[in-house]
Design a protein around this nucleic acid. Structure first.
Lengths: 134, 134
DNA sequence: GTAAACCCGGTACCATACTACAGGGTCAAG
DNA sequence: CTTGACCCTGTAGTATGGTACCGGGTTTAC
């Protein structure tokens, strides 16, 4: 049993963040004191760590919310989680693909660059521009 | 010489977007009619295409703003643009790296999955969780 | 001359994940 | 019994890149 400050310290997130997670229905206090103080227990520590790990894997808070819900629902199958993970991998792959395209285009542009030229003649800008002058 | 609607049509962006670019000081009308109507010319068409191309290369509107400024400044050197492009490449590489890490982690998790298992036993969730139960 | 299409400024809203107050009440140590 | 650390709610702001709407005025074509 702990207050929000202790939970924040244990998990390394800010107090405001925990209240934000509560608004998002991700981490609810197990109880309230008569004074209104939130009370948390170890399960809240695990939940916040779950959230942080999920974020590291590229899940949004909304997605993490449904993973948490799956975990609780008795009818949830491991396959449901697997499907979400597979979707996320596809998403990640497509992001990587478009980043690679950006990198390739930028690398080619840099190859044409002669540093001392004034920007008026810069082949990078011209190429971003698509035309010779503005 | 054209109004905002024509410019929007020529460039494929929305009218509101052009007004937004104006607020961001990226595309300013060359003049105003007595009625207050914005007047644009071909240079605005090029500028908006420049913005769209810059976004495709991964630059933010702020960054595109400084590229546009470099293009205008007489003192700007092509090398300044090159440096920005190189920084952007590093950024892109680091994003790719962290996406690859996510993908790898997710792929490993999926490998342990047995679809019919209830989520209570799901190795993916357990692993995100870091512990056995919540 | 009138109606449709267009434009104006200003404000507010979308998603994402927080962060920062303000103006209070509560709790624990000394 | 007071002081400082802690907590409360509620609201607003951050960055990013727009989108949507409102109540007007303008322009254009017929």
């Amino acid at each position: 049993m702990m207050t929000i400050g202790t939970l924040a310290e244990k998990t390394g997130v800010g107090i405001e963040t925990i209240r934000y997670y509560e608004r998002r229905n991700l981490v609810l206090p197990v109880a309230r004191k008569a004074s209104g103080y939130r009370i948390f227990d170890e399960s809240s520590v695990h939940k916040i760590k779950f959230i942080k790990n999920g974020q590291r894997l590229g899940f949004t808070l909304n997605e993490i919310g449904s993973l948490l819900a799956l975990r609780v629902k008795k009818s949830g199958r491991c396959g449901d989680v697997k499907r979400k993970a597979e979707e996320k991998i596809l998403e990640i792959e497509s992001k990587i693909k478009s980043l690679r395209q950006m990198k390739k285009a930028l690398t080619e542009l840099i190859g044409h660059c002669h540093a001392e030229r004034p920007t008026g003649d810069c082949p990078i800008l011209q190429s971003i521009n698509g035309v010779k002058e503005d």
